[in-house]
Design a protein around this nucleic acid. Structure first.
Lengths: 129, 129
DNA sequence: CTAGAGCTTCCAGCGACTGGAAGGTCAAGG
DNA sequence: CCTTGACCTTCCAGTCGCTGGAAGCTCTAG
């Protein structure tokens, strides 16, 4: 199958699939005409990537995940460790975003938002705390 | 004051301060020796940037915020709108991260994490759902 | 006078794509 | 058979917000 079919099947943009080929993440075959040729197995990996990326794994993580996936003798502990690390990252980000949210929300609620020039949001940003 | 003092006072890396000068966000003066010269007002703006960036505003947002900040006749509604937009972005991201977290957490808890080759995490990633 | 810290510019690279130009290939319709 | 237009190729450049490093100038302390 050609790249567009594969990309559609995996839920990825064509450009991204080409990019994954370029960086050796999913190496497509080539037809006589020079077109990339994708098999179901390729699509499978692409979808794997689509999903992993969606879960916030970096391409480096994905490369590792993919090789673990292909290694019949891998230990599931390896994958678990990677996932746990990502979970920690996510929790950290959640905390950060949460405190960010409350700061911003407080600023917004203290701003009357009319046509007068004074604005508590800017004042606060300027004050720097 | 020189760039290092200014950067320290604003809580930013020197490189970043130079970068902000390059892109015209905070244009420093120049001394006879060619060194950038920063005033308290510059530091004030740098700190403003440090804080806005920390709240997740893009440099484009920051540029706008900064010009609103300097505009004596601005309407506070403009700033408020920007902040509200950011707040929405944050909420969106929080929701996304939350569902991500629960997916990952579920995967992790279903993985025994030993030295056997079967791993529910990889299986799930591969299945694509 | 010398050493080392601090400043300058410029260039390159990060991650993960994305857009666009220039050109080859294929399938369908006239 | 020819044209049209969709699809494919490569390559180069740009995105965002820095960050690192090299080469070279300036300043300060001993």
């Amino acid at each position: 199958m050609n790249i567009t079919q594969a990309a559609d099947a995996a839920g990825l943009p064509v450009k991204t699939v080409r990019y994954y080929d370029d960086i050796g993440l999913v190496n497509a075959g080539r037809g006589e005409n020079g077109y990339r040729v994708y098999t179901d197995d390729h699509v499978h990996k692409l979808r794997f990537l689509q999903r992993s990326r969606g879960l916030g794994f970096s391409l480096t993580d994905c490369r590792q995940l993919l090789s673990l996936y292909e290694d019949q003798n891998r230990e599931s502990a390896d994958v678990r460790a990677l996932a746990l690390q990502r979970l920690e990252d996510i929790d950290h980000k959640l905390r950060e975003l949460g405190s960010l949210r409350s700061t911003l929300a407080e600023l917004v609620s203290s701003c009357h938002g009319d046509d007068r020039p004074d604005c508590p949001i800017l004042d606060d940003l300027a004050a720097g705390k």
